[in-house]
Design a protein around this nucleic acid. Structure first.
Ligand SMILES: [Mn+2]
Ligand SMILES: [Mn+2]
Ligand SMILES: [Zn+2]
Ligand SMILES: [Zn+2]
Lengths: 162, 162
DNA sequence: TGTGTTGCTGGGAATAATTATCAATAATAA
DNA sequence: TTATTATTGATAATTATTCCCAGCAACACA
């Protein structure tokens, strides 16, 4: 007797089968490929970036579906949506078991460069956890995630100012 | 002999005379009124909110000028620009000597409610300062300010889920 | 206190990201 | 396999923000 294997298991985008079904959503090709693209991405992508990458794997994809799916994944808490101030949203898979660890951002207000930053000190991680707990208690607010962004001037723009 | 008083001094929007002139900018009515409105605001306003309020004081104002001025003030570091994920930017006067102290945000991903949060512990404030210093050194990045936002479910939406 | 320079403004048009519509399609339960 | 209905994709619509440019006004310098 062969052990049953759930559909999509082992396939790049099929890893999230359980997550989707668990929330009562259907496991469709667009959803799988979008998740696969997000998973393989090493940096924050815009909706259009994602559309282009998905299109190479699954040409039938529509831009609307990309937006719709991203919104869904954000609601599900699987994806982070960021705004770096350039008029388009960026998306990153939340740190699960995968590549991209949770990180914060340094954003240059001059040239728009974004630096990912994830080598937190023990102290930092600890304090954030503690703060979240306190906020939860004080405001009766269930914290699901957070964004921390530092704005200023990057190395290059700093030099240019002098 | 009467002590000279700089133009606009004492007037609500004239408080920033020095800031503007110091950067080589002209002190115009739109700029003064926009700053006055931001100063009197108790909460984060959208560009349109600001336009409407300014319009009551200075009806000749144009929406374009509001956007232009806000961009200028953000570049000058006098104003904070936020994105709460509803498609429109929000603006708050940076904590100077004035009303609104520096604060962070709790954002409900369900209903969009935004809670201002500014009763930091000594520990929190300290760590942020320390982190900024470390980042400055490590990435050669001049930190000018930061945003910290916690996403999750507010009290009301939490109750509704059950 | 005039006057010239030029930074600043306002209205309207243009742009571009995101959403809404809706008939066709395909995932899932029976 | 078949029925149900969530999901999709093309297109149109929306909407925040930016561009453009002729007229205006702040202010440096008389
Ligand atoms: Mn990132
Ligand atoms: Mn606020
Ligand atoms: Zn830069
Ligand atoms: Zn809520």
């Amino acid at each position: 007797m062969i052990m049953g294997r759930r559909w999509g298991e082992g396939r790049p985008g099929g890893r999230w089968h359980g997550e989707l079904r668990g929330c009562g959503y259907r496991v469709t090709m667009p959803r799988q490929v979008i998740l696969q693209v997000l998973d393989e991405a090493k940096k924050h992508l815009s909706a259009e970036d994602i559309f282009i990458k998905v299109h190479q794997i699954y040409p039938a994809i529509g831009l609307t579906t990309v937006y719709r799916t991203l919104e869904l994944l954000v609601r599900m808490g699987l994806v982070h949506k960021f705004d770096f101030g350039d008029g388009r949203a960026r998306y990153e898979l939340c740190d699960g078991n995968n590549e991209m660890a949770h990180h914060h951002h340094l954003i240059c207000t001059d040239c728009g460069r974004v630096i990912d930053y994830d080598d937190f000190t023990e102290e930092e991680t600890e304090l954030i956890k503690k703060t979240e707990k306190e906020l939860a208690k004080k405001y009766d607010f269930t914290v699901r995630n957070h964004t921390i962004q530092f704005y200023g001037l990057c190395k290059k723009c700093n030099a240019l100012k002098k």
